[in-house]
Design a protein around this nucleic acid. Structure first.
Ligand SMILES: [Mn+2]
Ligand SMILES: [Mn+2]
Ligand SMILES: [Zn+2]
Ligand SMILES: [Zn+2]
Lengths: 159, 159
DNA sequence: TCAACAGTTTAAAACAATTCTAAACTGGAA
DNA sequence: TTCCAGTTTAGAATTGTTTTAAACTGTTGA
């Protein structure tokens, strides 16, 4: 049986994640299972990016930002691949894209229904728990269209 | 007394707007008064752009779009000035900027409190009257920040 | 086991939207 | 009129993203 990069098998790490640091564990298994889930080949680059994205808590990240994280983690991946991957992940529901400004788009690892504060001029996104916004009464979409999703962005500043 | 382009004075047209085509009238006076209101010099370019923007009903327009309208109307103005002007108008409250996608930003002549449908992939913005969305319960902004405005964008598609 | 091929990655160029620069111009005060 | 701060402009630069076409690699099935 051929080794992967670490020499550890997937199932090993999956089954032993019982105690300590509960938030992040089984990074390899998690990344792999996510890719399998959506039918994307687990290539070296996608695995590495998936780990960077999904290990640890939710994050709001830009393409450049993720590319920088990859460099720091000594993962060799081109910016084009970072963009490809982010879009593939978004299209398959692993990520959500949040647009806050012209030429400023974040990818959100939290795909649950929730909204955002956008802190200017810092350019920082902060989650709003879904139950702290109540959106009663929504309008009927224009004829011939169907509602895809509702984005609420609350722009805030530091005075 | 020197004529303006049309040979009509401002006050003339202001006072006679009583009947017919009620939506658009006194274009010159309107543009001028808006500029005065916010303390921007009524230059040839700003006046022309103000007319294009504020004559007629509310519109959602891009910079390129407005530049194109200016060309058609035989107004000589550079794209840089169009951008400058749109931002000055936005900063002084004459316009509102609506960001719908990375690298896609619209300027809205309707500055009242209202929301938007964004029709994809056409890239078309449609107003939602404010009273057809009810946003009960808003969250408290993060510490040290103050709420600037709430944007609701409902993304819809034609299936 | 390995050839074959579809899927993937990549450097580099291209692109689109926007901003910057530095020089020319102009509205309006004095 | 003169003068100057404010304005406009062509063109270059920047930013974020997409495209291209060639090289590479995971997976499959002989
Ligand atoms: Mn996208
Ligand atoms: Mn702007
Ligand atoms: Zn989020
Ligand atoms: Zn609008």
């Amino acid at each position: 049986m051929p080794d992967d990069q670490t020499g550890k098998t997937v199932t090993d790490r999956t089954l032993q994640a019982t105690d300590s640091t509960p938030v992040v564990q089984r990074p390899y298994a998690d990344a792999l299972s996510r890719l399998k889930q959506v039918g994307l080949r687990p290539t070296r680059q996608r695995m590495a990016l998936a780990k960077l994205l999904f290990d640890g808590g939710d994050q709001h990240i830009t393409a450049e930002n993720l590319h920088g994280m990859a460099r720091k983690a000594a993962v060799k991946v081109s910016l084009a691949t970072v963009y490809n991957t982010l879009h593939q992940f978004t299209d398959s529901g692993l990520l959500r894209e949040v647009v806050v400004g012209p030429g400023r788009s974040y990818f959100d690892t939290n795909t649950h229904d929730h909204h955002h504060f956008y802190v200017e001029p810092a350019g920082e996104l902060v989650d709003i728990p879904v139950d702290s916004v109540e959106l009663s009464r929504l309008p009927t979409p224009p004829d011939g269209t169907v509602m895809d999703r509702v984005d609420v962005i609350i722009r805030v500043t530091r005075p």
